[in-house]
Design a protein around this nucleic acid. Structure first.
Length: 580
RNA sequence: GCGCCCGUAGCUCAGCAGGAUAGAGCACCAGAUUCCUAAUCUGGGGGCCAUGGGUUCGAAUCCCGUCGGGCGCACCA
């Protein structure tokens, strides 16, 4: 990264420096908590370009009052070259006005940083492991996986932009009973491929997508497995079925533009003895004991009977019940293996993030308990966050959409991407905060105009690119030679685009990629509004053949606005199109 | 019954880890097209931020209760 400083970072530093100077002057005591000090644009632009709440936040811990502090701070800040005004307002805000020349410098900074504008090193290179999707390898990806996939992927990119090293990981649940069922289902399709008439029992996977796998095995291996006992063929069919499903899933993910760095196999984890190691350690610390599971509450289970199982003391860490790590047949529960899996991830990361569907909300406490127990016990507590994405209700013209041509009973991601396109799916999933439920209506989302922010943002970018092409055809090019010709409207646009680095930083800190989407929407709106000034007043257009200097400056501005939009869309994994 | 998430304009949603007079789109009303793409823009009406308390200089935002909606609640993943 170059040493080009963005205006946002510079002023955050300026305020911090001013506060330190006040410490030296003995106006402030040393060691004040600065975490809540913000430097950000006020909502009302008439209040200036930037405002800080420093005086209000620090008054109490400093044993002073906001007014006195603010006046001292203003004294320091007015001395800055880029500051043309500093005043105290409201309950103790300090409003700053920043010289136009500083905004023009920011425009040059965007140009200098290009595709890196907005990156920071706030994450300080810490390794963050983001586990997302992790759909069971028992079928193609469907809508239930989509939101988590998109949110996880955008979050991963966002954290990279904010200076973390990110590992994108997929946990392949290839060890439980479900993949055995998958193998048996494929075995049926295998027999079918060899001419038998089959019936698919309750509880098997009925989808047509298993037919080609069965057929392929029949082709490769002939009828040799027909007469063999299940114990012989099951592992083979399981391995082939899982491999085929993972190929399908990787294909589905690729359609969404998602590529994981690491696929971790649960079977491999178990083969390596990781769950045993965790159990041994937990037993040694009295965190696993042999106990009896309580009957579920609030729900009648008819054939419930008490069983003795090895239980993890998750209640010690805030869970409602202790949780079994092995089943009564001695095999690992999902949780028993998952706990070891999280330890495995923690070995090579500074921080863990899981993206889960809301239907797994009930298991958050136990896994957090396990990670806390193991990592604190090992003397290396690791920050661990589980992000829950809420359900998406699929609609078609307001009616619930069901049924897929491929799977028989659910809408697949492949179907959806084919119908509405990757960019629409991704952007739409990201224009809502993940913890709120959302509707996804095919009818609305394919509409290329209204109600569809993707096109709105892409259109802004396309307009800019189109204008640059048109200008080039007339021999006009962007130039920063005469930026002083830019006026109030243009500076306003720069101010808005200049928020990008701090939006990236705060979105990353809050783990909320949707903020990028809303920022882009606002920036696009500002651009469209600016553009339309040229409708009423031709002198406000980009291309003015008789004024090459002004045209060059405006094209330079447009180029950088386009760059910011492109960078933001890049985080979201949405294409910045050249034309619509 | 218990746990987690949500409740902001008629509808769909933002609200930047507590800040100044709560915003946008859709819908509704009134306008802009000899234009670098009108897939756009300008203006207007519309809110007890579910509700009752609390915390403080300051609450849509944090805490507690209530109401309403969603998800989950044995060895399934």
């Amino acid at each position: 990264m170059s040493d080009t400083t963005t205006i946002h970072a510079a002023f955050a530093d300026h305020v911090r420096d001013a506060l330190e100077a006040l410490v030296v002057d003995c106006v402030l005591p040393a060691g004040l908590p600065l975490a809540n000090v913000t430097v950000e644009p006020p909502r009302d632009p008439s209040h200036g370009d930037l405002a800080t709440n420093a005086a209000m936040v620090l008054a109490k811990p400093a044993g002073s009052n906001p007014r006195v502090l603010a006046e001292a701070l203003v004294g320091k800040l007015t001395a800055l070259a880029d500051v043309t005004g500093a005043e105290i307002a409201g309950p103790g805000f300090i409003n700053l006005r920043v010289a136009d020349s500083a905004w023009l410098a920011e425009l040059r900074a965007i140009a200098a940083l290009g595709g890196d504008y907005g990156r920071s090193n706030a994450g300080a290179g810490r390794v963050v492991n983001v586990e997302y999707v992790s759909a069971n390898p028992t079928g193609p990806m469907h809508m239930g996986h989509c939101r988590g996939a998109v949110v996880g992927d955008a979050l991963a990119a966002l954290l990279e932009w904010a200076g973390s090293k990110v590992v994108r990981e997929y946990y392949v649940n290839d060890a439980g009973g479900q993949v055995d069922t998958l193998a048996r289902s494929v075995y049926l399709r295998y027999r079918e491929a060899l001419g038998e008439t089959i019936e698919i029992p309750e509880g098997f996977y009925p989808g047509d997508y298993l037919k080609p796998i069965g057929a392929l095995i029949a082709e490769d291996e002939g009828d040799r497995y027909l007469s063999e006992p299940e114990a012989e063929w099951l592992p083979i069919f399981r391995a082939r079925a899982v491999a085929a499903m993972m190929d399908t899933i990787r294909g589905d993910l690729a359609m969404l533009g998602i590529h994981h760095d690491l696929f971790s196999s649960e079977a491999a984890l178990q083969a390596a003895g990781k769950p045993e190691a965790a159990e041994t350690w937990l037993r040694a610390h009295d965190l696993v004991y042999d106990g009896v599971l309580e009957a579920p509450k609030g729900k009648v289970v008819e054939d419930w009977e008490p069983v003795a199982l090895p239980l993890f003391r998750s209640t010690k860490f805030g869970d409602d019940q202790d949780r079994p790590i092995r089943k009564s047949d001695g095999k690992w529960t999902y949780f028993g293996a998952d706990l070891a899996y999280h330890m495995q991830k923690a070995e090579s990361a500074d921080e863990l993030i899981d993206i889960w569907g809301a239907d797994h909300a009930g298991t958050v406490k136990r896994i957090k308990a396990a990670v806390a127990a193991l990592s604190e016990g090992e003397g290396k507590p690791i920050p661990f966050d589980v992000k829950l994405v809420q359900m998406v209700q699929l609609l078609r013209d307001g009616e619930p959409a069901k049924m897929s041509k491929r799977s028989g009973n659910f809408v697949t991601i492949a179907d959806m991407v084919e119908e509405v396109g990757k960019d629409v799916v991704r952007f739409t999933m990201l224009t809502r905060k993940p913890e709120a439920q959302m509707d996804f209506d095919f009818a609305k989302v394919v509409e290329a105009s209204k109600d569809n922010p993707v096109f709105y943002v892409q259109y802004a970018h396309a307009r800019i690119r189109s204008t640059l092409r048109k200008a080039a055809a007339e021999g006009l090019a962007p130039s920063d030679a005469d930026l002083a010709l830019l006026g109030e409207a243009e500076i306003g646009l720069i101010k808005q685009a200049a928020q990008f680095p701090r939006v990236v930083e705060s979105a990353a800190a809050a783990r909320e990629p949707h903020r990028i989407a809303f920022f882009l929407y606002d920036l696009a709106a500002a651009f469209h509004a600016y553009w339309n000034l040229g409708n009423d007043d031709p002198s406000k257009r980009f291309i003015l053949t008789d004024q090459p200097a002004l045209t060059g400056a405006r094209l330079f501005l447009g180029t950088q606005i386009g760059q910011v939009i492109r960078n933001g869309l890049g985080i979201l994994g949405v294409e910045a199109v050249e034309e619509l």
